[in-house]
Amino acid sequence: MGFDEATHRINGVDTVVLSAGAGEPLVFLHGAGTAGGFDALLPLAERFRLIVPIHPGFGGSADDPRIDEVHDYRRHYLDLFDALGLDRLVLAGHSLGGYIAATLAIDHPERITRLVLAAPIGLRVREHPTTDVFTIPAPRLAPYLTEKPELLAAEPTPEFLAERYRELTSAARLLWTSPYDRKLPDWLHRARMPALLLWGDADRLIPVGQCAAWAGLLPNAERHILPGVGHLMFGETPDAVAAVARFAEASVPA
């Protein structure tokens, strides 16, 4: 099984949406890079209508410099959910996508049946700071991203690097000023739905030490730690997607 790809014009921005499978909708919001593709998520399509929208400013979606705060992404996805006819859904987000997912869950808890946050960015945990990805030179980035550097291009072309620069620029619109959202601790209590916090314990970008802080702020969260796994958990091990599937399936009526 592979993804179907469609382009939706959302508030003037051409947004690529990958989808596969049928059933209850499960939307996956990706992190700040699309180079690895999303085939690793396809097992989720066996039980769900899996939807992977590509953020504006990333991959095949168009750029929109107006999108420069997390609430712009939140509203973009509200528009997209409307366009796709999604009322209630399982929402998963990885890294940057986790931050957006958490924001959606805070503001629209009635629409999100279950929430998966996979190594989300956004929460400031002073004892376990997020690595400032902007300061890491491209040639040295791989060990921060993954325990399996073979997942990444060994000899990136200038074109590849330029595309990463574009995606980093899109992330910087949101995160340059601060990689943290100071308001998250004040409002995460509103995300009352069952939540799964998924983390690799070898994550060098967003350390696993942050997981406990999220768990303390979300009213209804469980944790799943993947041993020996880095930030790009879905590419590194099938256990990551299996954990999402197990958790999400609890919401599907038997």
């Binding site: 300061t135 030179p137 491209a138 595309e163 620069y165 910087a172």
Partner: peptide, 18 residues
Amino acid sequence: VPPTYLSPPGYVSREEFL
């Protein structure tokens, strides 16, 4: 000057970066 410092994200367009 390493490229990272020369071109912080968004300082130049994708085309100029290339």
